[in-house]
Design a protein around this nucleic acid. Structure first.
Lengths: 192, 192
DNA sequence: ATCTGTAAATTGAACGTTCATTCGGTTGCA
DNA sequence: TGCAACCGAATGAACGTTCAATTTACAGAT
C-alpha cells in the first residue's frame, strides 16, 4: 500500500470520498463502499487491514494530490508576488473543483483520526512545511514583512479555506473579481 | 427545550462536548454521555427525542454562547478600528478558551448534521449575519474598502479560525504580539 | 401539619438493528 | 501447481432506542 496505487484502489478511494462527503465517516459503512466500488467487502480487506487504515491511506492520498497541484511546476521565473497569487489561486481552485477531497480533509482534521496522522504538520489540508517554506522565502527576499511565519500562514491559508467554503456554499461566486479581491486583502496585509 | 436550560441539561451538554472533542460524534455513544453526566440513558431521552436532536440542540446552545461572547457589550464609543480588533480578539479568545465548543462546531460544520441546521447562515461557528452587518457598517462609515462583503468576511473569520487552531495545536503562542500581528495583517488588507 | 392523587422525572434492562471484521471457498494467472 | 486476487455469507460486538416500573414534586383537601 505504498508507492503506486492500482486502478482498483483508486476506484475504492474515489467512491469512499464521494460517500464520506455525502454521509460522513460514520454514515459510510464498508458494505456501502464495497457496493459502490463494485468489489466485494473481502477485497477491500485484502488491501486494507481495517476501515481506520483505509481512511488513513486515503488521507495520505488526498494530501499528495493537493500538494502536487499547488506546488508542482511553480515557475521560479515569476515575481514573488505573482507566485503568491498563484499559490492562493491554486489552493482555492483545487478545493472548489474537488469538493469531495476538501470535505474529507476538513472532516479528517476535526476528527480523532487527525491525532493518528502525526507524520507531518498541516495547515488547511496541505503540507504546512511547503507553505511555511514558501512564506519564509518571501521574507528572505524582502517581499514579505518579517513577522511570525505561522501567524502569516494562518491568515494566508485560513482566508483561502473559508473563501473556498463560501464559494461551495454559494455565498460567493467563483470568478476573477472575487479571487482578486481576496488575494489583494492578504497581499496588502503581508507585503513588505 | 426552548428558552431556559436547566442545570441538568447544561450538565449533559458539557459532558457531551467533552466526549465529542475526545472521541468524535460516532465515538460518543449515548451510554457514555449518560454515565459521564451521572444520569440514566432514559433521562436523556426524556429531554431529547434522539441523539440527532441532542446534537442539534447542543449546536444551537454553542452558537448562542459564542455570539453573546463576541457581540454583547461591544462599545459603540470606540473607533471602528478598535471594534474591528476587539471582535477578532474575542473570536480567538473564545475558541482558545473553549476548545471543546470549538472542536464541536468544527466537526458539526463539516458533517452531514450541518445540512440539518438550515435555520441560519454561519461563518466559522458564529452567526454570519452579525459579522456581515458589522463589516457593512465599516464600509458605510468609510472605514473599510467597498469590496464584496463575503470575501472580506472570509479573510476576517478564516484567518481567526486558523490562527486559533494554530494556537490550540501549539504552533503559535497566544500572546499580544501574535494577536496584534494577525489583526494588523487583516486590517491592512481591508482598511479604506 | 398530614394525607392523597397525579403528573413529571428518572431509571436501566432488554430489544432489534447496524456494522466492522472474519474466513472458508473460488477464480485467474504465472 | 501454487499463489495472489477476489468473493460474500456468517459472526459477534456495539449502539440507539424503548418502555414498564419506580421515585420525586407538589397542589389541593382535610
Amino acid at each position: 500500500m505504498n508507492v503506486q496505487f492500482t486502478d482498483k484502489i483508486e476506484c475504492i478511494f474515489k467512491h469512499t470520498l464521494a460517500l464520506i462527503k455525502e454521509n460522513g465517516f460514520h454514515g459510510t459503512p464498508m458494505s456501502m463502499i464495497a457496493k459502490n466500488s463494485d468489489v466485494a467487502i473481502g477485497t477491500i480487506y485484502h488491501y486494507f487491514p481495517s476501515k481506520e487504515n483505509l481512511i488513513l491511506e486515503l488521507f495520505s492520498y488526498c494530501r499528495k494530490k493537493i500538494n502536487a497541484f499547488i506546488f508542482d511546476d511553480l515557475s521560479e521565473d515569476l515575481s514573488y508576488q505573482e507566485q503568491f497569487a498563484i499559490v492562493l489561486e491554486r489552493f482555492c481552485k483545487f478545493q472548489i473543483n474537488n469538493t469531495d477531497i476538501f470535505s474529507f480533509l476538513e472532516q479528517f482534521h476535526n476528527s480523532p483520526f487527525n491525532d493518528l496522522a502525526h507524520d507531518r504538520q498541516k495547515v488547511g489540508g496541505c503540507d504546512e512545511n511547503n507553505v511555511i517554506t514558501f512564506l519564509l522565502k518571501g521574507m528572505e527576499t524582502n517581499n514579505l514583512r518579517k513577522i511570525d511565519v505561522h501567524v502569516m500562514a494562518s491568515a494566508y491559508i485560513g482566508a483561502a479555506v473559508t473563501f473556498s467554503k463560501s464559494v461551495i456554499y454559494k455565498k460567493i461566486k467563483y470568478d476573477k473579481k472575487h479571487l482578486d479581491e481576496l488575494i489583494e486583502i492578504i497581499w496588502n496585509g503581508v507585503k513588505q
